[in-house]
Design a protein around this nucleic acid. Structure first.
Lengths: 337, 337
DNA sequence: CTATTTTGTGGGACGGCTCCCACATTGTGA
DNA sequence: TCACAATGTGGGAGCCGTCCCACAAAATAG
């Protein structure tokens, strides 16, 4: 079906030299006479020779491939990080293979098998909201395959991590709401096993505490990122006897959904109820009203994670360092607050 | 650095059998005695054996990898297609490796080399706005590697293509503007060498013709998708002696940019000037005013393209068919028109 | 009960490349 | 001039599987 590939053997035969010499010329080994080197390079060019990465990988036991596992691609959050990863990896000659776990622990485990079978040199992962067992990730450590966590991390594993300071982002978002005079601030929180949810919740709580506002349990609703449920929860909040006067949502899609419900109820944003999101989706600047949100340096996260991974790749395992990089979020104030 | 991999040889040695038998058991070959089969499978499980795809690929001369080259990831357009490709491919056991050409012809050529070097089994590509020479793509045909075009296609190459009926989408969008009473409809068009630009332009022109409206050249501005320029062009249009009363933009990001300019000029949308986009970006429903646009079945495009590719993969090259699938767009009428 | 097929198994070439070892050739220094 | 090093080159093992061929043992047929 497929046509014959030009190999180094073809070149060697043509020029009447050994394939060792051809290999050396092609890989830039110094000890090749200039005459042969140019002859080889020219012929390779002429025959449109392509190195066979498969064979090279098999020899070197490295594939120049980085694996990435992320929960989803629905929002622009992970795609943006991914683009940065892809570009950074490409600069160092690495390919990227991507899997979506779809927020399912089982799929995530399967994804790690795929990564293993494909012999990725390293893995960047953001775990699912369900992931509580980390055996499938520890395999990588045991096999000596470097691992980097991004955004949704596993604290107990000693590997590099790149995160945004969720606590501070949340704190400043809520502080901002308080400073605009809001007193009953609701929080649509994320799944409790995710560190980001807990950190954002803590930021929210500490901001309330700092300004001596009461913490009202019925205004804190954790949910599982299933957007369908946002409508229900938001309605519920709006129908409370004492309606909240602000809403801090775990992320922008949640905030956007909530805004639709609030607008449907003919309530004024931000006068009746202010809304703040988290993540600065591309669309958040354009919706009506434009959404106040906490921007995360996504591109930088991708770059840093990839750099951290490639750094491990170039070092002996004994020199690996489990540095956690905490990037600063930025509060972007728009018309929803 | 990396630890020793478990291989079929390890299993063979352990069980005192030949690696042929192990290979057969692992690949589900029928002629293996049940006793050995279970023994092998159990030991493989126990040792956490992972098949080495590299070696397998080298043997089979196929990598179970599909290459995808797209111009960009800035908008949600290609990511959405990509997600569908990824999922469809995964269902058939294929990995996906992705390159962005960044709308640069040179990068696209480099990307194809990467695909070749990595021995992708097939390629799905949407060409850049600059691509006018197709030699780098014809290599794939010569090598017998199936190719599928998506969205931005090359008409002269006889391979499967998946497109949206851009002509009809544009026609209906402009027809809709005319039916709401608009008479001077401007068009921010795309680069002229892209078929999608030409098709949309033709849809625009034919709609005007059908309703006997004059075609006014100064209202038709082709541009290169560089969003910065939209501001300039929109301003220019608004400052014409006879201002247009509607704008049909080549895509949603263009329309969104234009809307910002129009709003800044304190003109009313759609009363003073209506705006229609193309592509139905996620955010288009939420911006103010919500954007009338032509929705393309992106997910379906990805699925169809991948299916077309995999179909080729499973057939002899002599049976390949260069079918062009034309998917129907849908006009979504919102408040901007 | 022998002749033939079926079944299970091992041996080994092969895929394309890298890299170590060995060897010949040339160059260097005393 | 000779010993020794540096340089360039070839040979071949090895990476990890697949798959064809050969062959023995068991099952089937006549």
């Amino acid at each position: 079906m497929k046509q014959h590939q030009i190999t180094i053997n073809d070149i060697a035969r043509e020029l009447n030299i050994s394939k060792s010499t051809v290999s050396r010329a092609l890989t830039g080994h110094p000890k090749v006479s200039p005459a042969k080197r140019t002859a080889i390079l020219e012929l390779a060019e002429k025959l449109d020779y392509q190195r066979n990465m498969l064979a090279i990988s098999l020899c070197n036991n490295r594939t120049n491939t980085i694996g990435v596992i992320v929960p989803e691609f629905r929002t622009s959050f992970f795609p943006k990080i991914l683009v940065a990863i892809q570009e950074t990896a490409a600069q160092s000659g690495y390919n990227v293979i991507v899997c979506q776990s779809g927020e399912s622990y089982e799929t995530e485990v399967k994804n790690t098998k795929v990564m293993l079978t494909n012999h990725v040199d390293g893995l960047i992962i953001s775990i699912t909201k369900e992931t509580k067992n980390y055996e499938h990730l520890k395999i990588f450590q045991r096999k000596g395959i470097p691992l980097v966590f991004i955004n949704r991390i596993v604290n107990e594993m000693a590997v590099p991590k790149v995160v945004v300071d969720d606590y501070e982002g949340a704190f400043r978002a809520v502080e901002h709401l308080i400073q605009t005079g809001k007193k009953r601030i609701a929080h649509l929180a994320g799944p409790e096993n995710l560190l980001i949810s807990r950190n954002r919740l803590n930021g929210y709580l500490d901001a309330l505490r700092k300004y001596n506002l009461p913490i009202i349990q019925e205004l804190i609703i954790p949910y599982d990122f299933n957007l369908e449920k946002v409508k229900i929860y938001t309605k519920h909040l709006l129908e409370l006897k004492e309606r909240p006067d602000a809403l801090f949502a775990i992320n922008d899609p949640t905030a956007v959904e909530a805004i639709q419900v609030i607008k449907a109820k003919k309530l004024k944003i931000p006068k009746d109820i202010a809304v703040v999101g988290f993540s600065n989706e591309y669309s958040s600047a354009y919706i009506d009203p434009s959404l106040t949100t906490v921007a995360q340096p996504l591109e930088e996260m991708g770059i840093r994670a990839t750099q951290a991974l490639i750094e491990q790749l170039n070092k002996d395992i004994s020199e690996w360092k489990a540095v956690t990089q905490v990037l600063k979020p930025e509060l972007i104030i728009r018309k929803s607050s």
